[in-house]
Write a protein that binds this DNA or RNA. Structure first.
Lengths: 237, 237, 237, 237
DNA sequence: CATGAATGAGCCTTCATTCAT
DNA sequence: TATGAATGAAGGCTCATTCAT
């Protein structure tokens, strides 16, 4: 029994090794530069072994995506469940997003990279469902906080507007990261601290939606810092 | 001389044909499905001829990107130079962005697609510079309107904040389009009219920045409609 | 001892299971589609276990061939030992051949399929010898009936001609089955009942050899039917 | 112009080289042993070049089959159009068949080998049609001679029986060749001249069908020899 | 004995690029 | 200048066989 589980641990270990290697390769050379041959060479296992873990290239990449989503979702859920006023909790999700990009830059980048690649057709159904579920639940976490804001009277909003706000925050974050990663001109143009700019725009948008207390009435910079420390502390335990 | 210039026209014509074909292929089959062989077959010129126009595949794709940026810049400049209050002009740029996505969906999609592919290393320096310049000037157009807003007293803002605002608008637009194009979950989640949601978030952000007149004081929906008609009219002339 | 023999029975049982599975797979997907992996998956034993029964893929396939030959030989011997005039007995062998194709289509098809694949080089010597012996004895059964015909005065024939006749019958049967199985054109050409045509040609050839009584003097169709029923009855006991 | 046609000749030449190489490889190592890689290595051209001639492996093999059928059909037509009594002409086709196997043994063997392999699904439609047409027309040639025999009163036969006879001759020839090529036991059993045995069985079958003049009334051995010389002479011109 | 993870040679196919004509 | 045949590295994937457990 002990023997079997050691083997199993080794296998699981190797799966992680494959994924890590693939992720690095994806980041370095793009989707096109990611090849089964090269992964095999790098991990020093045979190609056949990789195919014992993943049915095809797409399946491997899908696994990468799912892994990333899992990490993100975990961080989002931790953030949303923090205590405080609803806009503080919304801020916390923003902090989580930023933290995710900062602590797990590879995962964050993979997320962007894979958006434009159609891997889901050939990936195993199991993995496809996992992906869909993770993405939906990330959005639901955010929507939940918004609804709590409405319930608490911090925010006045119709039903359709809730989704609109979530979409706005998501767009803002996603777009900013995308531009940071790929834009030729961003530094030339004079945006030296895009991450800070994103955080600021975040609060401006919430102000625009009149989510109380407004940033003129409350120090969200301090809030963000506090939450940040809190989330980091949680992670390390 | 007349002969030479006819020849030149033919060459230019063929270059456009190649680019159009490549763009369509890129959209239909993705970057991986784009092949020099297939382009040659479709345009009924030889592969060698294509290589007389572009030094390599990456150069061709870069040309595609530059072409797209030119179109976008043209639309942005037309929008920014419209008459009216500064926030109306800012709104106009938003309308232009939307119009670009609507009227030139192929160009807009190409823009997204190419963001994640590293083509600039192998593309000719000339082409790379062109891209950089176009992108910068798109942002400058927007920044110009913001500065005009500050100058007109419609908006109070420090220098750094101007770039932050531009970055915010850009993030919002880019992110929204990116999510629309690729997300698995967006419809599931309940955002049925993402384009309208984007427009709304646009104004919410400007409200957040306190750009006068606020959307509570002015009908930007009507403004947008007017400008939209205006821009379309201009294009057709 | 009892335990050992149970074990032995189980092993023999599993060998048959492997062969049955392989045969089905061979028929469904052709020789190329036959893989040790897939067989293992289907029988729910490990690949290693299969290799305990057969030294290599070729050996397994050879075993398949031998199995088929055994079945055919059994049917031939039963047919040849029927009572009646010698040409009736010869007819009986023809009926047996047809019955074999009809009752054991999988075996019959495997026989054809494996003719064109060179498996005998790598198969175990034991298996190769078995194959040779079975094939020879099938022919000997037929040759025996011919010799009986000569002895009975139903047929006038030199020694060499006996083999020629056997070869003729065998060619006719083998060729017809081969054409039925694989020809593109056979239906187009207008042969709608190839099995009946084969039976007829069978008798025509025997008439050509002047084997008495000729088909003009004796109703071999009735004979064939009678024998057919007889053979089927025997099988079921 | 001269240049272009030289190039074209070279290309056609190379196509033949590829086919010859593939045929040899097919005969030596069977269908499974036939690989694009090995062909390329042998002809000392690159793999890519082969793919400029044939769309895929199946297409190449189909071309092989078509080539073979063309040769056979040519020989059949020449034989059927010889002058003489109808059974002599039928005999001529038999001689042609034998000659085909003798002079072009590689082609004859390829025909057998490919019968059991399903290449037609992936081969180009053009080639598939060619194959079907060739096979049908080979049979039609034979059927034509039979009909001439009936018309000339040499043979009494209903319509359905004509196809039956053709099928019989075809089975006999195909089966005999198949057995010769692949049987383990044939020599052991004592058939030392299978080709002669086939020829003899051929005439026995025609005797069985009562095609006049019977072999007891006419020396078909002499006829065959005469025709054989005639066909060989024709070929060399 | 039974297992099944690991192997790695080999398969078919594609494609950007070059260069003789 | 235009062509398109030729290249050959590279890609994704399969599979018979072995061997430590």
């Amino acid at each position: 029994m002990a023997t079997a589980s050691r083997k199993q641990r080794e296998i699981r270990q190797r799966e992680l090794l494959i994924l890590d290697t693939a992720r690095r390769m994806l980041l370095e050379k793009g989707y096109i530069g990611l090849s089964m041959d090269r992964i095999a060479a790098e991990i020093e296992y045979s190609k056949g072994t990789i195919y014992q873990h993943f049915t095809c290239k797409e399946d491997l990449v899908a696994a990468l995506a799912v892994q990333t989503m899992t990490v993100r979702r975990g961080m989002f859920e931790a953030a949303a469940s923090i205590s405080g006023r609803t806009r503080e909790r919304m801020t916390a999700v923003g902090v989580a997003d930023q933290l995710f990009a900062e602590i797990e830059p590879d995962h964050a980048r993979v997320e962007q990279l894979l958006k434009e690649v159609s891997i889901w057709d050939k990936a195993s159904a199991e993995r496809r469902n996992a992906a869909l579920s993770y993405e939906t639940s990330c959005m639901s976490v955010v929507a939940g906080v918004v609804r709590d804001g409405v319930a608490a009277g911090d925010l006045a909003m119709s039903d359709g507007e809730i989704e609109q706000l979530v979409f706005g925050l998501w767009s803002l974050a996603w777009g900013a990261r995308s531009i940071m990663a790929a834009s030729l001109a961003i530094e030339k143009f004079g945006i030296s601290e895009p991450e800070a700019a994103l955080t600021a725009n975040y609060q401006v948008l919430l102000d625009g939606y009149q989510w109380r207390p407004l940033s003129t009435e409350w120090d969200y910079v301090a809030t963000a810092e506090r939450i940040r420390d809190e989330l980091i502390r949680q992670r390390s335990t």
